[in-house]
Design a protein around this nucleic acid. Structure first.
Lengths: 167, 167
DNA sequence: TACGACTAGTTCGAATTCGAAGCAAGTGAG
DNA sequence: CTCACTTGCTTCGAATTCGAACTAGTCGTA
């Protein structure tokens, strides 16, 4: 088994730092645009976008939380805000009595449509503009497997209490 | 000039989403490890890491804030926490009377050294592991220019109010 | 020197965020 | 059926985060 190396080499470090910085800067810029264009936080936008993308326009709370990498309690709070603003509605789930289904409303879609152009504009000018078409493709090709890997890898702290794995 | 397209094509969207998700997931995982290993938040770790990297072991408040993409007031708060914990010290700057210089202490370096192996381990297993050496190189090669571009691009909201317009 | 504009940090209040604890509904073994 | 365990969501309290307002020190220019 590979022992954990004492440090990362410059290239690895460069990739890691650049990734974090790019994400932070992009998020920051997008956040401002969304605030101005539609008084939405980034999380709220992400939630609306995910709902808008879903064929049914709805998702379970838990799936939303996992999707945007957010705490459950945080999602409850945000869902409450969005509901109060009339952008989504919460309702009981069909098959599972304890789960709550969040659905985007017409107003939600309208707002999403209103902020989207500016959002895309920011993403374009900050992230995409300095890259060629091939490079964007390459970037997606690199990050997508990484994301899948991360999604598949169980969180560190979840490990201790393993029930039935060959261990 | 390109007027803003109404939407991004799947590849662009994939790159954008994957980037955000990867960064979120990575940050989340790292945060947990740091909390357990040394009771540090991610920002605090970033600050210590930057200070530890600096030849002098110190930076101005503003440079730190910009470096980690944080608000100034937030940095004041975090610097206070770190100082109270004895990990850094704040002092006046040599040439500029209004700026404050933050310097990492021995204890700060010690803690940094203590949490670093685990940190690297997480970055390795989540971000680097699924990529080949060449791919890591490619990733760094793609993201570094993007970061530089973002750093160079002035924030959106700064532009409009440049001069004393009619207001 | 004096003035106005700007930069560096801090303080303050309000909003957000998370984890722990709690509650209700589903699941499985006996 | 019933008990123990798990899952889905909310509530609660504490910590963090940001922006706006404020103080102080710098710079450019007349």
């Amino acid at each position: 088994m590979a022992d954990s190396p004492p440090s990362l080499d410059p290239v690895q470090l460069g990739a890691y730092f650049a990734l974090i910085e790019v994400a932070s800067l992009l998020r920051h810029a997008v956040e401002q645009q969304l605030r101005e264009a539609g008084d939405l936080s980034y999380v709220q936008f992400q939630l609306l976008a995910r709902l808008g993308d879903a064929p049914s326009g709805s998702h379970r709370m838990t799936d939303l939380a996992d999707g945007v990498v957010y705490s459950r309690s945080g999602l409850t709070y945000q869902a409450g805000l969005l509901e109060k603003a009339g952008l989504v509605v919460r309702g009981p789930s069909a098959d599972d009595e304890r789960s709550v289904t969040v659905t985007i409303t017409g107003a939600g879609r309208a707002l999403l449509g209103k902020v989207l152009p500016g959002h895309i504009e920011v993403v374009n000018s900050l992230l995409l503009e300095p890259l060629s078409r091939d490079q964007v493709e390459a970037l997606a090709g690199l990050l997508t497997p990484v994301r899948d890997h991360m999604r598949a890898t169980p969180p560190r702290s979840a490990a201790p209490r393993r029930r039935k794995d060959g261990a």
